[in-house]
């Protein structure tokens, strides 16, 4: 294992201290393990709290700031945060209008956020939860834990964040978050596995000429293994899987997201293929993101996320945002 770390057990604490030093716009609560906006809660505004295992940076801490999250709760690498830290973050950002929990659909995240919501409820804080489950690679059935939350989380945090910033109430912000999730689908591909600092070796093995299709964001194996194919074919596989699940039409928001170990030039190669496929199917890319927005440590590969926009969602996407990971219009 080769990593820029001091010691495997110190990675999260060291990284959080680094975030604190790099971003004066954030307050990093080092002991309680959560990140908030430096200014404290905005009076009367619905608070947005998300969190999950670390290793997906800039998600979630990098999306704390104006127009997006109020707090993020980083767990250990690829491990969900614990109820105490989520509870502390929830209480810290409640400005009287209630708090929305944005939770990626993994058993651990769902259970820990659920326990935190109960603790906050005991304190009289109103909490609504939205579970993001956009990954079409997982069969959505009673035979699985349900679809994973992946790329759509970035869209949900941005759009719900914009609505909250405009003064929408908790029910409205939660409904918008659910709408974004329902209109979004993702598919991921890995070219290499990744290594947890504490484990010291990769979560799975891939031969030089192999790729893992339908991969998640935790270094776990995906749905199937195949011979490495040209970027164009990979993009087609991903978009066909998405289109089969949710027919695409009209205006869409597209994200070609790097998993952490893929250079931007390759993401643009994928984006070209995505743009051609969508235009060939009569779909208009109204907005896009190309870059590393929800990563899986140093995994090579990418995910493609598509959201079917409405005029309201487009307007909220365009609203000003100022966070370490996403900023425009302000």
């Amino acid at each position: 294992m080769k990593k820029l770390i001091n010691a495997p057990d110190d990675v999260l604490a060291d990284a959080l201290a680094g975030v604190a030093a790099a971003h004066p716009s954030l307050t990093v609560h080092l002991d309680e393990r959560f990140i908030t906006r430096a200014g404290g809660p905005t009076p009367g505004k619905v608070g947005l709290v998300s969190g999950g295992g670390s290793g997906h940076e800039p998600l979630h801490g990098g999306y704390v700031g104006y127009g997006m999250l109020d707090a993020a709760c980083p767990g250990e690498v690829f491990t969900s945060p614990v109820p105490d830290q989520i509870h502390a973050a929830t209480t810290a950002v409640d400005a009287g209008a209630g708090v929305l929990h944005i939770v990626k659909n993994y058993t651990g995240d769902v259970l820990n956020f659920q326990m935190a919501a109960e603790l906050a409820d005991d304190d009289g804080v109103r909490v609504e939860s939205v579970v993001v489950n956009d990954d079409v690679a997982v069969e959505d059935s009673t035979w699985t834990a349900g679809r994973r939350g992946t790329g759509a989380t970035v869209f949900v945090e941005k759009i719900a964040g914009a609505a909250a910033e405009r003064g929408a109430d908790l029910a409205t912000v939660a409904a918008l978050a659910r709408e974004v999730n329902e209109r979004s689908r993702s598919f991921g591909v890995a070219l290499t596995p990744c290594t947890l600092p504490a484990a010291g070796k990769p979560g799975f093995e891939l031969a030089d000429d192999e790729m893992e299709l339908g991969v998640g964001i935790h270094g776990e194996p995906g749905r199937s293994r195949a011979k490495l194919a040209p970027a164009k074919e990979i993009a087609t596989t991903a978009l066909e899987a998405i289109h089969a699940d949710m027919p695409l039409s009209g205006d869409v928001l597209v994200m070609v997201n790097g998993m952490g170990g893929t250079p931007l030039i390759e993401l643009y190669v994928v984006y070209k293929a995505v743009a051609e496929w969508l235009s060939g199917h009569g779909v208009t890319i109204a907005r896009n993101l190309v870059g590393n927005y929800i990563t899986s440590l140093e995994m090579a590969g990418c995910s493609i996320t598509v959201c079917r926009l409405t005029p309201e969602l487009t307007e909220l996407w365009d609203a000003p945002v100022e966070t370490p990971g996403l900023r425009w219009g302000r």
Binding site: G75, E76, S80, V82, P83, L111, M115
Partner: peptide
């Protein structure tokens, strides 16, 4: 266990 474990196994 709930406070320190994380993941699904902590709550369970």
């Amino acid at each position: 266990l709930i406070s320190k474990t994380g993941g699904a196994s902590g709550p369970l």
